[in-house]
Simulated assay, not measured.
Amino acid sequence: MTPATDTGSVRRLLRDPIGSTDEVIVVSDHVTVLREAVLVVAEADEDAPDHVRLLGTEGALSRACDDFLAASRAADLVEEERLSMRVSEQGHLPSLVITGGEGGDPNRQSAAGEVEDPSRHSDSGEVTTISPLPGNDAVAVRTDEADPVATIRSAFARSFSDAAEYEVGVPGYTRLLESLDVAVGPAVREDVASVMEAGVTVRSSADGVDEIDTILLVGGRNGAQLFELSEWAEDLGVASRATMSSRKRQLEAAGLLTTEKIRADVGRPRQRLLVAPEELRDSPPADLIRGARDALVDE
Rank of each mutant, 00 (worst) to 15 (best):
Ile215Trp: 03
Gly91Thr: 07
Arg153Tyr: 06
Arg175Gln: 10
Gly8Met: 10
Arg293Gly: 15
Pro277Trp: 12
Ala44Met: 00
Asp76Met: 01
Ala276Ile: 01
Gly267Asn: 06
Ser283Arg: 12
Gln225Phe: 09
Val168Trp: 07
Glu58Thr: 09
Asp287Pro: 02
Ala140Val: 05
Ala253Phe: 10
Ala286Cys: 06
Thr2Ile: 14
Ala150Met: 10
Ser119Ile: 12
Arg272Thr: 00
Glu23Ser: 15
Met196Asp: 06
Asp191Glu: 13
Asp117Cys: 14
Ile212Tyr: 04
Ala276Asp: 15
Gln225Met: 11
Glu81Ile: 01
Leu236Asn: 06
Ala264Lys: 12
Glu23Tyr: 05
Ser245Ala: 14
Pro148Ser: 08
Val184Ser: 14
Glu89Cys: 01
Ser283Phe: 00
Asp213Ser: 11
Ala111Phe: 12
Leu133Trp: 07
Leu236Thr: 15
Val170Asn: 00
Glu165Cys: 07
Asp207Pro: 02
Asp207Gly: 03
Ser205Asn: 15
Gly219Cys: 08
Val38Thr: 00
Leu61Phe: 04
Tyr173Arg: 10
Asp22Phe: 02
Ala140Asp: 05
Asp235Phe: 08
Pro186Glu: 11
Ser230Ala: 15
Gly255Asn: 12
Glu114Gly: 02
Ser246Gly: 14
Ser62Gly: 08
Ala64Trp: 03
Glu231Met: 13
Pro17Lys: 11
Leu280His: 10
Arg263Gln: 15
Phe160Met: 08
Tyr166Asp: 07
Ala60Ile: 00
Ser283Tyr: 00
Val168His: 05
Cys65Trp: 03
Ser88Gly: 09
Glu234Cys: 12
Val188Thr: 14
Glu80Lys: 09
Arg86Ile: 03
Ser110Asp: 14
Asp213Pro: 10
Pro94Cys: 07
Asp105Asn: 15
Arg142Glu: 08
Thr21Ser: 15
Ile130Asn: 05
Ser154Lys: 05
Arg221Val: 06
Ser88Trp: 03
Ser245Asn: 14
Ala42Ser: 14
Val41Gly: 01
Arg175Asn: 06
Ser205Arg: 13
Glu89Ser: 13
Gly59Glu: 13
Asp137Lys: 12
Val192Ala: 11
Ala138His: 04
Arg241Ile: 14
Ala111Lys: 07
Ala42Arg: 03
Ala264Ile: 00
Tyr173Ala: 02
Gly219Tyr: 04
Ala193His: 07
Leu14Cys: 02
Glu58Phe: 06
Asp67Arg: 03
Ser28Phe: 01
His30Ile: 02
Glu126Asn: 09
Val41Phe: 01
Gly59Ile: 03
Thr2Cys: 05
Ser110Tyr: 07
Glu252Gln: 15
Ile262Lys: 00
Arg189Asn: 04
Ala64Asn: 02
Asp47Leu: 09
Glu228Pro: 01
Leu133Met: 15
Val192Asn: 00
Pro285Lys: 02
Leu226Ser: 13
